[in-house]
Design a protein around this nucleic acid. Structure first.
Lengths: 132, 132
DNA sequence: CTTGACCCTCACGTCGGCGTGAAGGTTTAG
DNA sequence: CTAAACCTTCACGCCGACGTGAGGGTCAAG
């Protein structure tokens, strides 16, 4: 399969696919013409890469991780358990990122909620809080 | 107060404080020497800006928003209710960002959990799932 | 042969929130 | 007087995951 078809089948731009190769996330064969020749399994591989990228994993970590993943994507191969530690770091980084965003959103919601919708409400708000 | 003291009191670098002025997030007065002269209230203002930046609000939106905020930071002034719409957009953007991160983390956790800790566990895992 | 779809490799542009100098003026302490 | 600690503006560097051309090759159809 050439790059255009893979792009269509994954919804990823050709540029992104070339970028993934540059980052060693994909290693397509080459046709005599120099065209990239992707395997059918690369459709799944691309989805895999995308979900890990969406998790915020840096591409070099994904590159290290991919050869460790079994076909089903269910776990890591033996001899790759050294990857667990960086994975746990990323998990913790995600957790704190989520907490930060959640706190920020709560603050934003509070600001929105405390803003009156019209002048009548504003007058009531002033009466309750004092003149601004 | 000059920039160094404000930096110390807020934990924000001087460079960042100059950047905030460049982005119209702060408007310090100037001393005859040309030095920035910050008001005491700018300590709170900086914390405010930081929390909005942490929420992912673009600085130009914060710049529009700041003159709308009352001293207590509790709500928006009247005549600024047009800000509500972009704020709600940002809130929704935050919500979907949080959902994405949460889903990504769940996937990462699943990957970690399914990876056996030692060879014995791996043998059992192979027995249950078939050879990898 | 020509058109046109498809592909290639550079290589610079983008966004945001700063970091990091360079090159110099001002104020303060000794 | 000197040195240190401030301060100024100007302006390029950085990160990451691509976007966006430029300037070409490849290949099947008409």
């Amino acid at each position: 399969m050439r790059i255009g078809e893979l792009a269509r089948r994954t919804g990823v731009t050709e540029r992104a696919l070339r970028y993934y190769e540059e980052q060693n996330l994909l290693r397509p064969a080459r046709l005599p013409s120099g065209y990239r020749d992707y395997a059918p399994s690369d459709v799944a591989a691309v989805r895999h890469v995308r979900s890990l990228l969406a998790a915020g994993l840096p591409s070099h970590l994904i590159a290290d991780l991919l050869p460790c993943m079994v076909d089903t994507g269910d776990g890591l191969m033996p001899g790759c358990r050294s990857m667990l530690s960086p994975l746990e770091s990323e998990r913790d980084r995600l957790t704190s990122a989520i907490e930060q965003l959640t706190a920020a959103r709560a603050q934003l919601i509070a600001l929105i909620d405390r803003t009156p919708d019209d002048d009548a409400e504003y007058d009531a708000w002033v009466a309750a809080h004092g003149a601004g």
